[in-house]
Amino acid sequence: MRIALATATGAAVLAAGAAITTVTPAYAAAAIADIKIDTTVSFIPPSGSDSIPFTVKVNSPYTGSKAPDIKAEFWKEGEATTSAGHAASVTALSDLANTTPAPTPASSVEVKGSIPVSSSDKPTTSTGKWTLKVSAYPDGSTTAVSSDTATFEVKAATRVTSANVDPDPVYLKSGKEVDVYAGFHLEKFGDEKITDVRLESKDSDDYYSLSTGLEADDSYHDSTSMDYSTSTGSWQLRISISRATKKYSFTKAFQVKKSGSSKAKSKITLYASPSKVKKGKATKLYGKVYRGSKAWSKKILKLYFKKKGTSKWKFVGYVGATSTGKYTKSVKPKYDGYWRTTAAATSLTSGSLSNIKFVDVK
């Protein structure tokens, strides 16, 4: 319960039947009232950090031109409110403008704030009780003239468990379709809704959309068929979920391969424009890198040069491909010579060399 300070020296304030004599402070008391916490988003995030918004009304905020300091602290489930709390953020009130005549102060103002929350703040049950305390301090004072508290529920984080893709790896077969099954369980602690479920390639734009319906026990099962044209490599099951105004994604990785071949083939094209340049002038080397029949997104290539009349290739530097597999590099050759790019092999893809381009330096 909040006890308001009396406005006259020596006045008696009754609280639970006890008479308390108070002294009028040098600064009139701004009164904290009506704490409202946005309980629609008062839940733990499944990963990282977030915040829980709140508002509080400050009655009689001004006497004179100086605004009071509004501070807030909170205690998590199981923490004693008799000890120091954790700091919450509060929007500071502005002093009244120093103008003549002075503006009429508002009888009350609404202050916004937020309570930080992270994935490590796990309630011991599906719902935890937290406490928020908001206090008003006269400008420059360390003694609060008014405080109010509110207790609120913080619900557990949305969780996806038992996510799986079967088979893993998926082996594609020429001329046949392969059935791929996806499943998971959604642990709901609020109004969670599944907005999208898909199997998507991490190396290309290839994906398969699945249904979004849950079974009666909040488990999920669906399937699709992949044919031989499906991109090979790293894939993932992506589950998109909304909860109040928040949106979350959960993923489960798996692999797609082609039967009879443990690695996808790669290919690089290389062009030079212009192919004849004056010494000190630039030419553009460009092309595209492929993984199978599709672009090898974000692949880092190595660029090599061999001077005319020599037999040794010299490493010049790296060049990165875009999400569409295209790359470009501007160079200023000093000598006639040959250029090429290379793509290093990975566990899923074979390495490759580009064609060779000769640049004539005049």
Rank of each mutant, 00 (worst) to 15 (best):
S242W: 08
S225Q: 10
L199M: 14
H185A: 08
S209L: 09
V41A: 10
A106P: 09
K284N: 14
A16L: 06
D50S: 14
V197K: 10
T124E: 11
T322C: 10
L172V: 13
T22P: 00
S323F: 04
L353D: 11
K278I: 09
F184N: 04
A19C: 02
A343T: 06
V165S: 09
D203H: 00
P53W: 12
A272Y: 12
S266K: 10
H185N: 15
I194D: 01
W339T: 04
P138V: 00
K334W: 00
G183W: 06
I300E: 11
P105S: 03
A15R: 14
T81A: 15
K246P: 10
K307M: 11
K329T: 07
E187P: 03
D166G: 03
T7C: 05
D148W: 03
E153I: 08
T212A: 07
A19E: 15
S162M: 08
G337H: 02
D191E: 02
L186K: 10
V256A: 13
S311M: 02
L303A: 09
Y271E: 11
I32K: 01
S275A: 13
Q255A: 15
S120Y: 06
K284C: 11
T328C: 02
S49D: 14
K281S: 14
T9M: 04
K281V: 12
A72E: 12
P103M: 05
R2Y: 10
A16M: 02
G64V: 03
E215G: 11
P68S: 00
G309F: 07
E77F: 14
V170W: 06
H221V: 04
V256K: 06
K71P: 06
D191A: 14
V316D: 00
Y228R: 03
T310W: 12
D166V: 15
S266H: 10
M1G: 11
G128E: 02
K202D: 13
K71Q: 08
H86F: 02
G292Q: 09
E79C: 10
W235E: 02
L285E: 12
S266P: 07
V154R: 12
P105R: 01
D206F: 03
L353I: 08
S259A: 13
S60Y: 13
K276C: 13
S293F: 11
S209W: 05
W313K: 04
K66I: 08
E73T: 15
N98A: 13
G351Q: 08
S211Y: 04
A136R: 00
L301Y: 15
D217M: 13
A88V: 03
I356C: 10
T158E: 05
W75S: 06
T142H: 05
D205F: 03
A282M: 08
T195Y: 08
K133Q: 15
K193G: 06
Y220L: 06
K36A: 04
K302F: 07
T125W: 07
P333T: 05
R198Q: 12
V117C: 01
Y228D: 14
S219W: 05
Y62E: 01
D222G: 11
A88D: 00
G190A: 12
V359G: 09
S65A: 15
D196A: 07
T224G: 01
K314G: 05
V160R: 00
D360A: 12
T212M: 01
S323A: 12
S141E: 11
V319W: 00
P105A: 03
